[in-house]
Design a binder for these strands. Structure first.
Lengths: 106, 106
DNA sequence: CGCCACTATTCAGTGTTACTATGTACTAGT
DNA sequence: ACTAGTACATAGTAACACTGAATAGTGGCG
């Protein structure tokens, strides 16, 4: 992945993952796969898991473990109230930024 | 400034400053002022100067010193060929990101 | 059985970036 | 002298995504 993308993802990847969770609960492996489908082909699994630990510690998501048919149990993350607030704030910040950048892009 | 904005600026602030320079050459103090006019009210001067040092070291800009009526000489930065390439790449990356996020935002 | 592929999570170490909080330096106005 | 405004610089910090590996469970194949 380009270095620019790496830097630009800082702050936005978190929002992206939380937006994914706002649709419906999901577990790490699944989220990674969905990101790849979206075109973020080079996001490492490790990156996603680290991010999930962070948002869990901040209390934005609730976690439950479910057995998996294949492999270790899944940790399923679901967005809670705080997470939804965070998401709303994320979209506000994002809109602010896109407006300024569109102006610059002419 | 919000923590979200701080993180989201990583990677984009550089692009914003370079986009500003693509319009016409400018010096640090001036760029800071322009950012504030744009609504980035809490971007510290130190942040901008550090960023300018970085992009100079990467060879994206040319630098010339001009005496100022008030205060120390101005370091005027102007975008060179490499900088323009970088800017083009920046817009491509930004477009990719906005497309995915708009999809998520529904 | 032993090996591989796929599923699923975790973690230590690294590099980059923006912020905080200063410090330096020059000029003009009071 | 003192203050305000202009202009640049920098050491230290926090946060984030990446690299590269390790661990663990299941099923299929030769």
């Amino acid at each position: 992945m380009g270095k620019q993308m790496t830097e630009m993802l800082k702050g936005t990847l978190e929002g992206i993952v939380i937006a994914i969770l706002s649709v419906r609960p999901a577990y790490g492996y699944e989220i990674t796969a969905r990101l790849r489908e979206m075109g973020f082909s080079d996001i490492a699994e490790g990156t996603v898991y680290a991010l999930l630990v962070r948002i869990e510690q901040r209390g934005l998501v609730d976690v439950e473990k479910y057995p998996s048919e294949k492999g270790p149990p899944r940790k399923v993350y679901s967005l809670n109230g705080q997470g939804q607030e965070y998401l709303a704030e994320f979209w506000r910040t994002w809109s602010f930024l896109t407006e300024r950048l569109e102006q610059l892009h002419e």
